[in-house]
Simulated scan of single mutants.
Amino acid sequence: MTLEELKKSGAIIFESISGSKAYGLDTATSDTDIKGVFILPKEQFYSLNYIGQINNDTNDVAYYELNKFIELLSKNNPNIMELLNVPKECVLYKHPIFDTIKKDDFLSKLCKNTFANYAFTQIKKARGLNKKIVNPVEKERKSVEDFCYVRQENQSMLFKSFVEKNNFNLKGFGLVKLAHMKDCYNLFYNEDLNYNGIARKNANDVCLSSIPKPEQPIAVLYFNVDGYSTYCKKYKEYWDWVEKRNEERYKNNISHSKNYDAKNMMHTFRLLHMAKEIGLDGEINVRRNDRDLLLAIKNADFDYDELVHKAEKIKGELDEIYKNSNLIERPNMRLVNQLAYNIREKFYNL
């Protein structure tokens, strides 16, 4: 089922603007995020074609099937819990049956960990961006040869330096694996014997050649397989990130020169403050009354270490807050399961 098919199906029971516009933290360049809940047609729900979630490519628009929605609520997932109290002006559509889902049946002391842990993953993401900014990966991809080393007599050097030093032709090299020596090879050179070289173009491993018995190796070659694998992973991660990154957000992070993703840090404090409010008041405050502080964090008005210290302090306060909270320990799964069943049956009978 596509998004277009879902919207025409009549299966949606809730749809709302979410994200920064729901929090009241949007700016002129903010996207409009949409979240919603739907109920699969009866024949599809009972078949093997169950669909738990439908979203667009960027996940800015996401709809959750009732079972998945209820399951995530029972785990006190922060992104899902907030749908139970979005500002009225953000609600695009709500079927009356959705009102049978009450926050008091789900809001529990699990929020201490779900909100706080999610908050601290944002800290890691915020710092992780710095590594990409200050350690860019060159567009031209390195080859197997860049991770090969040659030992000749008492010296060890990069294979490419060895070739350049001796003015060798790359097509004149041949390799034979050395027994009992991992990733080590005898290196042969003869321009007249049609050897395969040490690696084919765009290959991820060295290649071997058939070597006549009279031939003698000129050196031992070592291929740093682990180093090459790590590089390939880093290369892919970096250029995937470049392809998918939000350029406006990236330029903002570059401009403030604080070496962290300020938007991630803003969400860290939004989540921690929400966790604190839930523990103290039992309320999911989606529309933020700490907007000025959060936007100052997004604007990188604070140093990273200062923010981490503040976040750790709030996280430490949560233990005492939740210890004295009147919240239930966790949702009653018998009641949760009955609720999911009642909603589905009632919807199918309408």
Rank of each mutant, 00 (worst) to 15 (best):
L83A: 10
L84F: 09
N85G: 00
N85C: 02
V86R: 06
P87S: 11
P87C: 07
P87Q: 13
K88E: 15
K88Q: 12
E89Y: 10
C90N: 15
V91I: 15
L92Y: 07
L92R: 08
Y93E: 00
K94W: 08
H95L: 15
P96A: 06
F98D: 03
D99Q: 08
I101Y: 02
I101D: 12
K103L: 09
F106K: 12
F106M: 05
F106Y: 08
L107C: 05
L110C: 02
L110G: 06
K112S: 08
T114E: 02
A116W: 03
N117E: 07
Y118W: 08
Y118N: 15
A119R: 02
A119I: 02
T121G: 00
T121V: 07
Q122A: 07
I123K: 13
I123V: 15
K125M: 13
A126V: 06
A126F: 05
R127E: 06
G128R: 04
L129T: 03
L129G: 02
L129R: 07
L129C: 03
K131S: 11
K132D: 14
K132N: 14
I133R: 14
V134I: 09
V134Q: 09
V134R: 11
P136Y: 00
V137G: 11
V137A: 07
V137W: 02
E138P: 11
E138F: 14
E138T: 04
E138D: 12
K139F: 00
R141N: 10
R141K: 15
K142T: 00
K142N: 07
S143V: 01
V144K: 01
E145C: 06
D146L: 05
F147D: 13
V150E: 02
V150I: 08
R151F: 01
R151K: 13
Q152T: 05
E153K: 09
S156C: 10
S156P: 01
M157F: 01
F159D: 04
K160D: 05
S161W: 01
F162S: 01
E164V: 01
E164Y: 03
E164H: 04
N169S: 13
N169Y: 04
G172S: 12
F173M: 11
G174Y: 05
G174C: 04
K177R: 11
K177G: 02
K177T: 04
L178V: 05
H180Y: 10
H180P: 00
H180C: 10
M181P: 00
K182P: 05
D183Q: 13
Y185S: 03
Y185N: 03
N186Q: 09
F188I: 06
F188D: 14
Y189W: 11
N190K: 11
N190P: 06
D192G: 09
D192Y: 12
L193T: 07
L193V: 05
N194S: 10
N194W: 12
Y195S: 06
N196A: 07
R200T: 09
K201F: 12
K201A: 06
K201E: 13
K201S: 11
A203L: 03
V206Q: 06
V206F: 00
C207K: 04
L208M: 14
S210Q: 07
I211G: 07
I211H: 07
I211M: 07
P212Q: 08
K213Y: 03
K213E: 15
K213Q: 15
Q216P: 02
P217K: 09
P217C: 06
I218Y: 14
I218Q: 12
A219F: 01
A219T: 00
L221H: 01
